[in-house]
């Protein structure tokens, strides 16, 4: 590894990317990017006045500062400790899967032969904490939001798992290093485009991006599961979805886009970062493109087309692995 001497690969992974710094940095960049892109599509400027030479990049930082130093209100009808703890746990749990995903050879916190599979499962388990959060808030909007979140989870869970499974079957491994090694010839997108499409749509559903922004539909349920929160806790409750996007796009870059290939070391990390954009940019743009589906329409897509596509992707993988 060509990192400066006191830092080994796993420490870089823990501290910089995809660890703590990466998560918070992504939060800032993603919020800025989303506002900027949507604004530009709608012929507006978007964030501008904070740090004008950077195109307003520091606007989310200013917003986060403002939120941290705004009054923390703990509503009277809730369990105060749980009310404060659940968003922290949610944010933490959304970030946890990066432990098993590699950003470059050796840049992984816990190398494991089933690493990517564990990461997928961890991503899918977080819905529990979302429900717990809504439960502690004890508000009708949070209840409805959590209910929608669970229904949506039911819609994307299986296709997401099947898409990942298809890739694991194709590569014959779930070890992040070996998965990328196998892709040194052809990337996963080309080996199994069906799985890629399913993964992209499931990613939009999992992070409740726009056509599926059903749990926090503003005109209907205020902010869904985050309604009661303010101050720092709001950052966590609301930012958790961005962290999930971060994790899923990192996972997608490794699974489908050949991860850090064709480089290694610091350059490899940068390449992985760039490839995440393939998932992040559409996820940001959809806010300007789509209206919102009704929950039944989202469920129909999840259990209909998406499930059929993901099953086809698994079959494709089986055939490909058999022929190969």
């Amino acid at each position: 590894m060509d990192f400066p001497s006191p830092l080994s690969g796993d420490l870089v992974a823990a501290l910089v990317f995809p660890g703590v710094l990466g998560i918070f940095g992504f939060l800032v960049v993603a919020i800025w990017l989303e506002r900027k892109l949507v604004a530009r599509v709608q012929w507006r400027y978007g964030p501008l006045y904070v740090s004008r030479p950077l195109g307003g990049l520091l606007q989310p930082v200013a917003d986060l500062f403002k939120l941290v130093f705004s009054e923390l209100v703990l509503p009277r009808h809730t369990n105060r400790l749980l009310f404060a703890a659940t968003p922290i746990l949610l944010f933490f749990a959304e970030g946890l899967p990066v432990v098993f995903i590699a950003a470059a050879p050796g840049v992984v916190m816990a190398p494991h032969s089933y690493g990517l599979a564990i990461a997928v499962v961890l991503v899918l388990l977080v819905a529990v904490l979302m429900v717990a959060m809504a439960w502690t808030e004890a508000d009708k909007f949070t209840y409805i939001g959590a209910m929608r979140e669970i229904l949506l989870t039911a819609a994307y869970e299986v296709p997401l798992l099947l898409a990942a499974l298809a890739m694991f079957l194709l590569y014959g491994t779930a070890d992040p290093h070996k998965v990328v090694e196998v892709q040194s010839g052809l990337w996963g997108v080309l080996l199994n485009p069906l799985a890629f499409v399913v993964y992209l749509v499931a990613l939009l559903m999992a992070t409740t991006r726009f056509p599926f922004e059903i749990p926090e539909a503003e005109p209907e349920v205020v902010l869904g599961p985050y309604t009661e929160y303010g101050s720092t806790l709001f950052i966590y409750a609301f930012g958790a979805n961005y962290v999930k996007l971060y994790v899923l796009s990192l996972l997608g870059a490794v699974l489908f886009l050949g991860g850090w290939l064709p480089a290694a070391g610091v350059l490899g990390v940068l390449i992985t970062l760039a490839k995440m954009g393939v998932f992040v940019l559409p996820a940001m743009l959809v806010r300007a493109i789509y209206p919102r589906y009704r929950i039944d329409q989202a469920l129909r897509i999840g259990w209909g087309q998406l499930l059929a596509l993901s099953a086809a992707a698994v079959l494709w993988s089986l055939l490909a692995a058999w022929i190969w």
């Binding site: 823990a14 501290l15 660890g19 703590v20 998560i23 944010f91 933490f92």
Partner: peptide, 20 residues
């Protein structure tokens, strides 16, 4: 690395709430 990540991550999260 895992322990460091978890400790640092949680510490930052809790710290921001406490500061606020």
């Amino acid at each position: 690395a895992v322990v460091l990540f978890i400790a640092l991550f949680l510490a930052v999260l809790v710290l921001l709430v406490v500061v606020g």
